[in-house]
Design a binder for these strands. Sequence first.
DNA 1: ACGTTTGCGTTCATAGAGTTCACGGTCGGC
DNA 2: GCCGACCGTGAACTCTATGAACGCAAACGT
Lengths: 268, 268
Amino acid sequence: MSGVPSGTPSGVPSGTSPGVPSSASPGAAGRGTGPGISVLVVEDDPVAAAAHTLYVEREPGFRAVGTVHSCADALRFLERARTAGTPVDLTLLDLYLPDGHGLQLCRTLRAAGHTTDVIAVTSARDLAMVRQAVSAGVVQYLLKPFSAAALHDRLERYARYRDSLGRTGEATGQDEVDQAFALLRTPERSTLPKGLSAPTLDTVATVLREAATGLSAAAAGAAAGVSRITARRYLEHLVETGRAVREPQYGNVGRPELCYRWKGERRR
Amino acid sequence: MSGVPSGTPSGVPSGTSPGVPSSASPGAAGRGTGPGISVLVVEDDPVAAAAHTLYVEREPGFRAVGTVHSCADALRFLERARTAGTPVDLTLLDLYLPDGHGLQLCRTLRAAGHTTDVIAVTSARDLAMVRQAVSAGVVQYLLKPFSAAALHDRLERYARYRDSLGRTGEATGQDEVDQAFALLRTPERSTLPKGLSAPTLDTVATVLREAATGLSAAAAGAAAGVSRITARRYLEHLVETGRAVREPQYGNVGRPELCYRWKGERRR
DNA sequence: ACGTTTGCGTTCATAGAGTTCACGGTCGGC
DNA sequence: GCCGACCGTGAACTCTATGAACGCAAACGT
């Protein structure tokens, strides 16, 4: 993938020019008439922001039209985009932002009549937060850290949702409406590598996340109720997908013990 | 059915007393602590309003706490309910109201920080409207006219959604969040999926419910007098509809055995 | 430097999951 | 009243996720 495309939009850092960034076709008017679904990435952490933007760019049918790092910038960006006649279709919204909470931004947007759909991207596992997100009109809730495949799955579903609603102007019946809603739901068939199962992965990931200090494969296995071999398989998968790191533990006699540590838990 | 129950709340017609109507237990404080999910019916047409209220009342686990006929009344009602410490959990919202549009009300609510979930009830078949509804945080979109069964299905799903998010305080993983979203968005399953029959489902469900500890598909089949394959089909259905959970059983060599366990001890 | 020690990483057998397909019963159409 | 279509069930088969056994790699100790 040739790294970050040279034309990648940089968004609007607090007051610079583009309401409509360069990558959007300048003449295009009206939502959805551009080449694909326009996406705004709102993410505090620059590294994550770049990663998310890249993921979006890679997704056919999507284009990242901006990347901002705060609520204020996000609001400003969306305002300008709407004024320019090219409203943003989808916003990838981190919930913890330096100048406010993402859901609050969401509510502000709604009050201002913005119709951007929102995918919440956060490490908040609080279920009450999930409920609030739902009531604020979030269409998807993605827990950090997530794999590229997971985001891909969400985006693809969203694209199909848009498709199903974009074509015709009138619903033929309840079924059609239900179908559209169902597309936003996620059975996450993000295919795991062969030999791995979702429930086990979940268990192991939880065990690891909850272990403040790192865990050896054997310890993780014991805690998760699986064998050391199985635990290692999943831990290794977590490392490969960037959700965990492993580092050798020296000091004792014998081969060094590998210590796996959860990586995603950024601040808060 | 004895018609409209005498105790049916009449809501707050433009300025009368009750913020918290008579049918709500007066002493109850805090959402969800009351006997069930509180529902506000917002509907222009008096006949339809009464019908919807009746439907809600009939649904076990739900109670209609009010019926109003305009945006202004709805807003007032929700404000008072929140102030009284018994916020409304769910709003059945007609979109065409005499003094404004339902979605506008919805946005106003969000801006004011209300977390009421909203089921849109409308005859608007416009797909653009559906999209706007989604972005406004509507959890379901029900086309009028609808059958009692259709509403029943939506309410039941919503109840399960609440259940899945109400229990624990922390999500163990993405799966759990996805499951909750799926409950809100999966289309109607009032008719069983092809290949499943009601009597067998009943048998399997009973067997599972009576097994204190979980059952494997094979064990459930044996107990229900059906083959392992058939049992699995129905167990899987129970899982999909949120009435059962399955968890792998580790320890032995070989593929882990899936253990199904009854979950929904809610009514019925 | 060499042996000791400890746990990693791999290979393989295994048991149960999941799928495909053929059968029997039932219901509606002609 | 007969025939055809359909639907729920179960048997056979393939596939997949797991743990046991085992050889090897990497650090420490002398």
